[in-house]
Design a binder for these strands. Sequence first.
DNA 1: AGGCGCTTGTGAAGACGTGCACAAATCGCG
DNA 2: CGCGATTTGTGCACGTCTTCACAAGCGCCT
Lengths: 230, 230
Amino acid sequence: MARLPEYLRALHNLAESGHETVSSEGLSAAAGVNSAKLRKDLSHLGSYGTRGVGYDVALLIEQIEFVLGLTQRRAVALVGVGNLGHALAGYDGFASRGFRIAALLDADPSRVGEEINGLVVRHVDDLPTVAAEESLAIGVIATPAAAAQQVADQLVAVGVTSILNFAPCVLSVPEGVDVRKVDLAIELQILSFHEHRKASLTALPATGGSALTALPGGFATTDTQEAIGT
Amino acid sequence: MARLPEYLRALHNLAESGHETVSSEGLSAAAGVNSAKLRKDLSHLGSYGTRGVGYDVALLIEQIEFVLGLTQRRAVALVGVGNLGHALAGYDGFASRGFRIAALLDADPSRVGEEINGLVVRHVDDLPTVAAEESLAIGVIATPAAAAQQVADQLVAVGVTSILNFAPCVLSVPEGVDVRKVDLAIELQILSFHEHRKASLTALPATGGSALTALPGGFATTDTQEAIGT
DNA sequence: AGGCGCTTGTGAAGACGTGCACAAATCGCG
DNA sequence: CGCGATTTGTGCACGTCTTCACAAGCGCCT
Ligand SMILES: NC(=O)c1ccc[n+]([C@@H]2O[C@H](COP(=O)([O-])OP(=O)(O)OC[C@H]3O[C@@H](n4cnc5c(N)ncnc54)[C@H](O)[C@@H]3O)[C@@H](O)[C@H]2O)c1
Ligand SMILES: NC(=O)c1ccc[n+]([C@@H]2O[C@H](COP(=O)([O-])OP(=O)(O)OC[C@H]3O[C@@H](n4cnc5c(N)ncnc54)[C@H](O)[C@@H]3O)[C@@H](O)[C@H]2O)c1
């Protein structure tokens, strides 16, 4: 499930604050999900809690990390060291969550040789050499959309089977290669949609509402996080 | 639906390349989804295509932009001008997709006053003043996780009802406020999970496989993009 | 004008995810 | 040792999303 990483983060927080066991209720609150859902997820992965007590935090962390394949630290290749690439290269949140940036690559000759966070930017054509040095598990694409497909092909060619794509475009890859996309503009547009919906709901009941303004309204967006708290 | 922005991007690409009409088949390929799903989505929003021909690209763009509430350019406040915040502030992809970064805010006095992309960084405590100057629609949080909740509260206090959160933590907000989260580490962990699954699938059939290695495998991750093309 | 090919819109079936509610299990305490 | 409090694991029902398949509609060509 896609919620496992969320649980993992919550568990790490709990472990740091000294908890040894957690109830499904407590953990679900920390992760922002329904407690029944969490129990089903956890049971689904075969993990055992003890009834009347809860889950052993350390054991559960170990279990989830195993299922996520985080027992080995995976090597990440970052292609496109521009605006966004710089921020990613300097981010310490990857190292602390089981990943290691193994290489920075760019096509711009003026960027090659630059050192960021102790890593030297290499030319993207050196990718085969880099891949030979160590086994790359994941490729991150932070190039303009126009170059993304070509970079993806290069990554696949050297044996990368998982790609995280920041460029706003659809990549076509052979079967067996997984692609996940992060598009900030899409996130903003979804929020914009909610704004628009909220505005219509408060405005319409007063006015009659034109035919055009009468949008269905009953739309479902894959909610990342719904309203919680008071 | 959360797919509308994806359609919109594909439509803009098609419009630039001179197409006047698109079939559901063509558009679905460009957006990377099933054609039946696309037709249902489009019909769901009341938009009319003409049978035997397809959809009018310009009209459809207009329709979707209306539903998403992009007819008005929305003002975005970016809080936390650090590593990631810099990249976001310098990104031109927001402006071209209907958004306008209206303010850059940070708590660090040494950052206040800095100019990025023609915008001056202001102190986060000036938020009420900024909100008074122009109506903020969306707040983006790019601060460390420890500060995120406090910033969210400040944003809500000045009337922001949509928040995009980059900090790896769960925000608690009053009802009526929408929160979307982007967590890169989670994306990487999901890819890691797929790597692990793929590795198990190719290794297991040969060896007997220990009890621990026998993970269910039939997991479902909310697929951003599945394998397409040959 | 009529037929033919193409494309949309949608009904229905199936898969899937979600949440309730409760039985089974475990611990602590008298 | 037994009982109650507590918490897990799960059967079940419900709503949603997905996909197939096909009828209805439109334009074009003859
Ligand atoms: N900056 C942001 O905040 C932001 C936000 C969302 C999405 N994005 C997307 O991320 C991508 C990168 O954005 P950016 O702002 O960093 O752009 P950028 O122009 O600053 O950086 C792009 C980098 O990619 C390199 N590059 C170009 N072609 C290449 C190739 N074939 N192989 C290797 N490297 C190549 C360039 O030399 C450059 O260094 C874009 O697709 C953008 O739409 C950026
Ligand atoms: N850099 C990345 O690539 C990246 C990737 C994924 C997630 N993130 C997350 O994004 C967030 C920011 O990352 P970063 O690398 O830019 O960190 P950073 O430390 O470089 O920047 C954080 C900024 O927030 C400011 N800040 C701190 N407290 C504040 C407050 N109360 N109000 C306003 N501003 C405040 C700081 O002054 C600083 O400028 C973090 O939560 C991080 O986990 C970053």
